[in-house]
Amino acid sequence: MGTPAAFRVAYRDLLIYRRVWKANLAGALFQPLMYLLGIGLGVGALVDKAPDSASALGGVSYLAFYASAIMATTSMFTAGQEALWPMMDGFRWSNAYRAMISTPLEPTDVVTGVAVYFACKTAVGATGVAMALTLFDDTRSWGLVAAVPVAVLTGLAFALPLTAWTSTRDSDRSFPPIMRFILIPMFLFGGVFFPIEQLPDWLEPVAWAAPLWHGVELCRGIILDSIGPAKATLHLLVLIGFAGGGWVVCTQTFRRTLRP
């Protein structure tokens, strides 16, 4: 039996990644570590000093609250950025995907291959963050192991719908606004820095609709062992819904762009 088609697609991206993975991993670790120290520990000291902050955070320290969310945010940024410029390169600039479908590969194989690649890349980043989290008493737990696949799924829940968008674009003009108006606001208001209950009432439902919040809640719940099975299942289903839905839309848009 030959190599599955999707792996042949992912192989190309992984070849490129193999050349840059060290710098990439260093970057993927550096940023969360900096935030852990700067916000988790630094701002955490201020938060924990305040009298009623612990109850607002569900009885944990700010460091534990914030650090457990970082696995999800790192995946979002890693996979999300991958779905923008590098995808555009494959479609319009270097035309690598166009070249692929003139071989026996089908557009659907390309979609799945891309997803496999996203999963590999976010898995490396999430594992790195998980290792960093073992440094702190508040977050050292076996839950970190289970949180890695959840973080990967969070990445896919983001990156696949974004990839569908990218595959229909002619230029990268819309990408900076996507970063500014989608990724950054989710990062800032998606339950990472503070519980979304603190958002104005009208904004809270918006956070429910964001895949990041589900990823953050699930990672946090698993790492801190603070989530019930019903809630966990719900978050998991939403993430699978985003990722699966993204995959389905991608198969359509890839076909339309690559085989017009």
Partner: peptide, 13 residues
Amino acid sequence: YLLSMRVGLSSLI
């Protein structure tokens, strides 16, 4: 960033 600090961290801290 400013709004996030205001609705989030400021009320915690």
